[in-house]
Design a protein around this nucleic acid. Sequence first.
DNA 1: ATCTTGATGACACCAGGTGACATACCCACC
DNA 2: GGTGGGTATGTCACCTGGTGTCATCAAGAT
Lengths: 187, 187
Amino acid sequence: MSRWKPDAQGRLMSAAIELFDEQGYEATTVAEIAERAGLTKRTFFRYFSDKREVLFSGSHELQRVWLEGVAAAPTDATPLAVVAAGLDPVAEMFTERHDFARIRAGIIDANPELQERELIKLQNLAGAIKAALVERGVSPNAAILAAQAGVTVFHVAFAHWVEQDDPTAFRRLMDESLEELRSVTAA
Amino acid sequence: MSRWKPDAQGRLMSAAIELFDEQGYEATTVAEIAERAGLTKRTFFRYFSDKREVLFSGSHELQRVWLEGVAAAPTDATPLAVVAAGLDPVAEMFTERHDFARIRAGIIDANPELQERELIKLQNLAGAIKAALVERGVSPNAAILAAQAGVTVFHVAFAHWVEQDDPTAFRRLMDESLEELRSVTAA
DNA sequence: ATCTTGATGACACCAGGTGACATACCCACC
DNA sequence: GGTGGGTATGTCACCTGGTGTCATCAAGAT
């Protein structure tokens, strides 16, 4: 029997989501989160760099999955097609987490600080995708624009997805956004 | 003779830029900024909602100018052309502020918190442009994607502009980004 | 049995941010 | 020319996010 209960990080994340959902993000202190998880404030900050981060540790997995999709794209695909190749595994990853995503989205939606964090995570994601494109020989300019476009498509589709009831609709919604972007940018 | 020196807000902004440039953003306290401006910490927070905001109060003007350009676009222009109509006045507005923009960009570049604020300002800008497009009869989906695309083009071009020496190059750089986006999203 | 390692707690501290109240000038009005 | 209200600022107390530092205690290695 180990000295501490297992999965401290997971307990902190769960406690945080619960409290944010119950009382709101701002009204919840880090000390409260830690207490509910049976830990102290100091330990919270050992697992998360700041209070917001407890809602965003999953972004690493999103990036991993997307980049795997990108890596699997055919060599001769256009830059945007390479980026879009990440959308399949991403949609799959999210489909089972519709309920969680909705709660989390509701919390983020109500708090500008959290929206800021979300945007910089998406920006980092775009940067990583850009790097992968450059690695494949795409020019830096085309790479950043294709990556940003893909991330925007994801972001717009995500917002629609959490607002409706069908967990399996994500892939379709992303395709629709992508098509809309193509039509809008057609000279 | 009035009781207080004029332009408290401007003095705070100048003091902040100076100190951030001299010692870095994090190493500068709000109390220091206020002191250099001959005011108190409490007064700083009467003018700016938080420490970061002192670098971003100009974003309101960017939005105003861009939306004026959008409003002046021909009725039959495509959504992206309407958005792009804002780039002309925006380029003009920035051309005279190249030096200032560089210093400010350097500060923001060195601080993730400031990048977050920048991103949410751009997001708000995109939201305002989207609303203007919807007002003109564009569908919400096309509007958000066109607005986001335009803001991304601006952002990418801005980054290039501050990294080179010709203050008048902004308009050309935005056109190049726009062209690159068109070419990248062409099916 | 002792040592080392790693996760946690305890505590003090700083800086960002806010609420409440005091102060002193300006101006309008009588 | 006093008087009263409005407004910008100062003062002070306070909370919370975030960090540095040291102590503690169990698990496993030697």
